[in-house]
Design a protein around this nucleic acid. Structure first.
Lengths: 238, 238
DNA sequence: GCGACTGTGTTCTATATTCGAACACGCCGT
DNA sequence: ACGGCGTGTTCGAATATAGAACACAGTCGC
């Protein structure tokens, strides 16, 4: 295959195909046959087979019923290594907040142009428990944590173009120290988020709570979040 | 490189090296330079470079401070796809158990010869919170969930050889319906676990609680776990 | 200011690795 | 028995990869 012309980055075809297998399996959410997989990847079946065997050797995929293929649990072990220190420091704080406020509380980080949830804690008596599962992804322009994170970055460092409207809202977040969202990700769901002020080099992050009804006192919730945010930042040498 | 002789399985060298990058990064728990990475993988620096760029394209690694390399948050998104239905059904039950019993409660699955924690919920007022983070791995011969899982399998299906001592203990677990552990993983930590009885083809799994002091009534705890285990199994058509 | 050092990123050719087709086999319906 | 569908294996051709050498930027010591 000759270089497809304008492309600049020579990347590894084999590795890329292997990763796409994982992406397809994560997306499918059910075991697939090798043929189905090869079809979706648009590669020859024998290629998919060899890649699968390699992934299987490393435990990243596993065989389910009838020889079908699914994601392996070892991926969870890899994910535990993502921002390990941050997760370790944040989890106790998330638990405390969730139970004090009676809301689901989670930690999200900036990853390229997305906001990805790394950890989430649900409160004890969750009436209408808002599912904010680890691994959830949103564009960085959507949701309270996204705005909180962008408010800590200079616009030059923003990974995407933002409209004038959103830019103004983020500026407001920067001033008052917290961000909010209504109906942005899930209808009727509202959120309040506060950014973490970590030392340079750490990836930008934020903690947030979600709730279905209007919060009694957003300012008070923001102050509570800020307290934990400061504790986490300090523990990580922010 | 000619086939190293007795080896039977032709696997993909490129993909395997790419995965090892992820494994090394998860293990290191701090950003590495490309040279450090290449050294640990025993590959040429330019090879590591190309693989890294590919991984970066897919968001599986990210650049930290000073161009150093670390795991990317997208891995968390992949991990969310591991046994997705099982996690979705189990999480509410884990939360309920954790808060009712005041102990950390988690879900573990069998993966080859290891027992891997997929999800974990800490109770509200955790005095001495036992860290059982998602992604934690143990040999399948160690810990209460391991024994609970093995007790549901016929010895012929066990992925490892087990001694006479452990075999007897597992048989006992099969009879009474739950497994226990003392000081097996962490000193002074005890655990109680109950297997999930899922339909064939699903990967063997168990739920468990951990505690630092001796439980008042192990039988009662086991009954509580069994109730949730039955609910989860039923929801998944077990 | 100037080198030595350490790091990233690029270019290039030989060749080992991968690709992709064809084949062997087992299983389950009709 | 047959055809369809699935996994797993073999093998030659060709291409994607491996690995070396090079270019360049920042940083330290002096």
């Amino acid at each position: 295959m000759t270089r497809p012309e304008g492309t600049t980055a020579p990347a590894s075809q084999t590795l890329s195909r292997g990763i796409r297998i994982l992406e397809v399996l994560a997306d499918a959410r059910e075991p697939l046959t090798i043929d189905e997989l090869a079809g979706r990847l648009e590669v020859h079946r024998s290629v998919a087979y060899r890649l699968l065997r390699t992934l299987e050797d490393h435990g990243l995929v596993a065989r389910g019923s009838a020889g079908r293929v699914q994601l392996g649990a070892r991926i969870a072990a890899l994910a535990a290594g993502v921002a390990h220190d941050l997760q370790a420091e944040a989890l106790p704080e998330l638990t405390a907040i969730a139970n004090e406020l009676g809301m689901t509380c989670f930690l999200a980080v900036l990853d390229r142009d997305e906001c990805i949830t790394l950890a989430s804690v649900e409160p004890r008596h969750a009436v209408a428990t808002v599912a904010q599962r680890p691994g959830a992804r949103h564009p960085i322009t959507v949701g309270a944590p996204s705005k909180a994170i962008l408010s800590t970055l200079s616009p030059a460092d923003w990974p995407v173009e933002v409209g004038e409207r959103l830019r103004a809202e983020i500026a407001e977040c920067a001033q008052r120290g917290y961000a909010t969202s209504h109906d942005e990700v899930i209808p009727t769901v509202q959120a309040i988020s506060v950014p973490l002020r970590l030392r340079g080099g750490q990836r930008p992050a934020a903690i947030a709570v979600v709730h279905v009804s209007s919060p009694a006192d957003p300012e008070a919730i923001a102050r509570r979040l800020s307290r934990s945010a400061a504790a986490i930042s300090e523990a990580l040498g922010g």
